[in-house]
Nucleic acid binder design. Structure first.
Lengths: 159, 159
DNA sequence: GGTGAAACTTCTAATAA
DNA sequence: TTATTAGAAGTTTCACC
């Protein structure tokens, strides 16, 4: 996949939209001293190029009653079962991310739950999958995010 | 923090917006057979209640040249240094998430990088932080997401 | 590439039900 | 809580730089 070339204006547009996707194009245009039409065309191009995949809301899961985060390392009986187990994992609700990894674990996932009890239930489901040898849980006591905005800045500085 | 009560309509609105934050309120209204004004009021309420924190773009980091994901477990010399080390970690670019955890590691982070070489540089920065005893890296070979939409469905089914 | 204006669509707040 | 409305605002297209 060819690397798409973004210029300074594209960066600035992304920068604004990453913070708030509903920012009016006219507002962006004013800030960047370009026309709203230009903003529109550039966003469309980035969408067509697949740079912008979509947009999403950021919700406060704590307020919804889901404050518990754990990471679970999964050890498999046989590496060949990876695909099968991964499919099963993806069917478990509240498992939000799963990675096949090198290193200590075969598969590595993130669980978002209500509380310890709820998380235990989810981890039991993981443990019960055929081919899973054992799991190792790490409970998150504190989450600290370098948000997307910061990541973008890191990337743009390098590009 | 009191748990906010969302009804079926709120769920449906969130459901649509989670997929595309720029969906016109009039479109949402049509789908749900309510008026656009109602959609507007409800979204505003959820924003005011802090359920909706914000909105963000989803970008294809692979297309931007950042296809490499690793998880790094950090062991500290002394637990009391957690706060200090966490602050330092948050200053390292390309470390996108950091968690203080119970279990195997003291701190656990996610690194997004260009390639192995780039990741190595970032992990060296982690290793070099005063108070860090050693780190353990897990390289992601394959990422599989149960996206926000699925998480929301899990939550709504339970609420 | 970009602009600016026209035509069209959507938002938002106020009022009424 | 919801519906209706109307002025304000935003989007999108297009002819022209």
């Amino acid at each position: 996949m060819a690397r798409f070339r973004l210029d300074e204006t594209d960066h600035q547009i992304l920068d604004i939209l990453i913070d708030n996707t509903r920012t009016a194009f006219t507002d962006i245009a004013k800030k960047l001293n370009i026309s709203a039409g230009t903003v529109h065309v550039r966003v469309k191009k980035m969408e067509e190029a697949g740079i912008i995949i979509g947009s999403s809301l950021t919700l406060d899961y704590k307020k919804l009653g889901y404050a518990f985060i754990a990471y679970v390392g999964v050890f498999l009986k046989k590496t060949s079962q990876t695909k099968f187990v991964l499919e099963r994992i993806n069917q478990i609700p509240f498992v939000t991310v799963a990675h096949v990894t090198t290193g200590k674990f075969n598969i590595f996932c993130k669980v978002r739950a209500k509380d310890t009890e709820h998380a235990k239930q989810i981890i039991f489901l993981l443990d019960d999958i055929e081919g899973v040898y054992r799991t190792e849980t790490m409970i998150s006591l504190e989450e600290s995010l370098n948000d997307k905005k910061r990541l973008m800045h890191s990337i743009f500085k390098e590009l």
